[in-house]
Amino acid sequence: MARSYLFIPGDVPRMLQNMDVFEADAVIVDFEDAIATHTKDEARDLTRAFITKHHENLPDIYVRVNAVEHDDFMRDIDALFGLDITGIVLPKADTHALKRYRETFEKKGEHPLHLIALIETPRACLDMLAIADYPLVRALMLGGEDLTSALATARTNARTEIATARGLMVLAAAAAGIDSIDTPYPVVDHPEGLQADIAQSVAFGFSAKACIHPNHVDAVNRAFTPSQAAVDEARRILAMHEKTGSTRFSLDGNMIDKPIIERAKNVIKQAGIHGRDLP
């Protein structure tokens, strides 16, 4: 269960070769928006060479390929063949794009790689449950900037313009039993804004958040790691649950029931995965 997904441009050696340094649970090597059309080939060759040669101790690697209707989509897929990566981030994902994606692999007689569906169009927002239910899709990710443009509106500090999409995404992902990854905070050097935006991601119930800059990763990891207080509380609930053998009891005057016990188990699981070494 990754908390942070860090975007790294595919044609910058300094970023690629330090992908394991930035403490992101997963990285997304970008072949799409971060790469100019005439250097797409450079990004593909560089990324392939790096992962082939330095494959030890790397985080989970996803690659954001170009959209299915783009000429570079097939070249991207070909360049990734046989590489040890976790999956693909598919931009402009909708049911049509997912079908094209699957067919591409079927034609080649290959197993398609798992997907993170990047939801960045109004139609995709309204089709999210169908997308989340698609067998290859492992997570939904919100592309807040493109969506905002498509809505012909402007980004606000409160991110009101994407609030509905955020809510829908968390619901659709939960309904399909997959992860939901919130859109990255788009400003590099604005710690207060970053904190406020992360707080929203957590409050909406996302399971993780994307990052456009390595310096955002630590704050995201912290926010998506259960606090010591939450872990202690969960331990007490589970201890009482074991002691009483009941799924309905009172603790410090609060009624504890099944959903709360399930949530406590989740907290312990999350904390276990990510250690408690974060200050």
């Binding site: 330090n18 340094v21 930035f22 403490e23 800059h213 390595p214 310096n215 200050p279």
Partner: peptide, 13 residues
């Protein structure tokens, strides 16, 4: 602001 420098500083903390 270099992310590698920031990582080192964070580790020091």
């Amino acid at each position: 602001r270099d992310p590698i420098g920031v990582k080192i500083a964070r580790t020091a903390m």
